[in-house]
């Protein structure tokens, strides 16, 4: 799945991945997809919780070589 923008939060701990993702997605338009990369194991639950709470759609979650990847579609 393609994405419109990307943010790399590798090496960052709570609450930075959520806060940085929020700041990034705010600059995008509704319907656009943000790719988020993290290494913080806590972000596996934090990013989906954040997206669900604010009305963004979690399209994809994956883990590869110690990194976590999320595709989040911005809500209205």
């Amino acid at each position: 799945m393609s994405h419109n923008d990307e943010i790399d939060c590798s090496g960052m701990s709570c609450p930075l991945p959520v806060v940085k993702s929020k700041m990034k997605i705010d600059t995008m338009s509704p319907g656009e997809v943000l790719k988020i990369i993290t290494t913080d194991p806590g972000s596996c639950k934090d990013i989906p919780a954040w997206a669900n709470r604010v009305g963004h759609e979690m399209i994809e979650e994956a883990e590869e070589n110690g990194k976590y990847y999320f595709l989040v579609k911005r809500g209205d």
């Binding site: 709570c14 609450p15 959520v18 806060v19 929020k22 919780a49 954040w50 709470r53 604010v54």
Partner: peptide, 11 residues
């Protein structure tokens, strides 16, 4: 500050 920034990020 951690909880406040997170909550604000959650609108």
């Amino acid at each position: 500050f951690i909880l406040a920034s997170t909550a604000a990020a959650m609108d």
